[in-house]
């Protein structure tokens, strides 16, 4: 019983960690989306230079462990740019976001390429510019096709946020570890935290599934990708 009372005391502390974790997830996914989508477009519609720059970017960020990227940015790049005072949380968002952009761009690229050439042809035949055709015809379809794959980014990013412990972001795992050190209670805390992650994972996937249902169109995109 003592354990439960102790744990209850710590709930507000852990809750702040939970908020940081959620903040990391949402901010990283958003950064990944904001950069990933234009990168996908660049890789398909861009010139040779743009295409190769993006390919190298994707290769780099997909080829490195999260922890190496975190160390590189937190101890290396940011201090070199005289930005040592940038909080770890921001560094983490930058790293997870830029890395997410690499993964997301490939999801979007696959989705865009799965759309038949005829859609662009028909749009252009009506007098749409290339940009209008992409904006009003290609993207609305591609985003729907990409959604299931994109949804899988959520659990990946969620579990990756725990690695931000390595640079001292005050997220859930960091706080749990501190709590373990203070209370000498280990297994119950770790297992409870694991439960929280699994719950977050489940809730997020449920929400994304609902979004998929809500944006689905009869007979469209089924079985694609």
């Amino acid at each position: 019983m003592d354990i439960i009372i102790i744990l209850l005391d710590w709930i507000p502390y852990l809750f702040l960690g939970l908020l940081q974790t959620l903040g990391l997830v949402l901010a990283s996914l958003a950064v990944g989306l904001i950069f990933g989508l234009p990168m996908a477009l660049g890789q398909i519609y861009g010139n040779r230079l743009i295409k190769s720059v993006i390919s190298v970017y994707v290769w780099f960020f997909r080829g490195l462990p999260v922890i190496v990227l975190l160390f590189l940015f937190f101890f290396g790049i940011f201090p070199s740019l005289n930005m040592s005072s940038v909080p770890p949380f921001v560094v983490a968002v930058v790293v997870l976001g830029l890395r997410g952009a690499a993964y997301q761009s490939q999801i979007f690229r696959g989705a865009i390429q799965s759309i038949s050439e005829g859609q662009m042809t028909a749009a252009r035949s009506l007098g749409m510019t290339r940009f209008q055709a992409i904006r009003h015809v290609i993207l609305p379809q591609a985003l729907r096709i990409a959604l299931p794959g994109w949804s899988n980014e959520y659990p990946t990013v969620l579990t990756d946020t725990a690695i931000c412990y390595a640079i001292g972001v005050q997220e859930l795992l960091t706080r749990a570890t501190y709590m373990v050190a203070q209370t000498y209670i280990t297994m119950p805390i770790y297992l409870a935290i694991a439960g929280v992650y699994i719950l977050l994972n489940y809730a997020g996937m449920k929400a994304l599934n609902m979004l998929e249902k809500k944006t689905s169109i009869p007979g469209f995109g089924q079985g694609a990708l």
Partner: peptide, 30 residues
């Protein structure tokens, strides 16, 4: 191209839009 309409063998309707929105999308955007 607005003045030269085209109808394709495989229709190429915009798959994410209803019939009426297929017809109006270029009216709105172009």
């Amino acid at each position: 191209r607005q003045k030269i309409g085209m109808v394709f063998q495989n229709f190429y309707l915009f798959d994410h839009l209803t019939a009426v929105r297929n017809v109006e999308v270029a009216l709105l955007k172009v």
